[in-house]
């Protein structure tokens, strides 16, 4: 079974979010998602300073046989993007929760985080998907 760290929040569409100490929120895709996609070959990220709203498409992750939109779980301004993914998209496969992060948002409404799934709820959602 894939890893689902307890301290993170999730969307059923397989994004994770982490509230950082500086108040920003880091977003990536889950271990389960990278496993389903297979070898990631390309990641398209939002523009720096772009304003995005929860539920928006904020990027695309591509493997050889599939492409998935990435939705942002929180609204706000994009303050950082993981530029390493341009040359080494395989980080999404090897380390989805740390080096394979996608982008960081300065959130305008932190209560959006509370509406996300916790680790148990996300695990349950994945299991339902499998059936």
């Amino acid at each position: 079974m894939s890893q689902v760290p307890k301290e993170l929040k999730y969307l059923a569409s397989h994004e994770w979010a982490r509230l950082e100490e500086d108040g920003t929120v880091t977003v990536g895709i889950t271990d389960h998602a990278q496993d389903m996609l297979g070898d990631v070959v390309f990641v398209e990220l939002p523009d720096l300073d772009a304003e995005i709203s929860a539920g928006d498409e904020a990027g695309v992750v591509e493997s050889v046989k599939a492409a998935s939109d990435i939705y942002t779980p929180v609204s706000g301004v994009v303050v950082a993007i993981n530029e390493e993914l341009q040359d080494t998209p395989e980080l999404v496969n090897s380390d989805p929760y740390h080096d394979g992060w996608f982008f960081r948002v300065k959130p305008s409404d932190t209560t959006e985080l509370e509406q996300m799934l916790d680790a148990d709820a996300y695990t349950e959602a994945c299991e339902e998907d499998d059936h």
């Binding site: 070959v41 390309f42 591509e62 493997s63 050889v64 046989k65 599939a66 492409a67 939109d69």
Partner: peptide, 12 residues
């Protein structure tokens, strides 16, 4: 780069 194409990406 087939993921750009209709048979994978469909409406997008």
């Amino acid at each position: 780069l087939q993921a750009r194409e209709q048979h994978i990406r469909r409406a997008k």
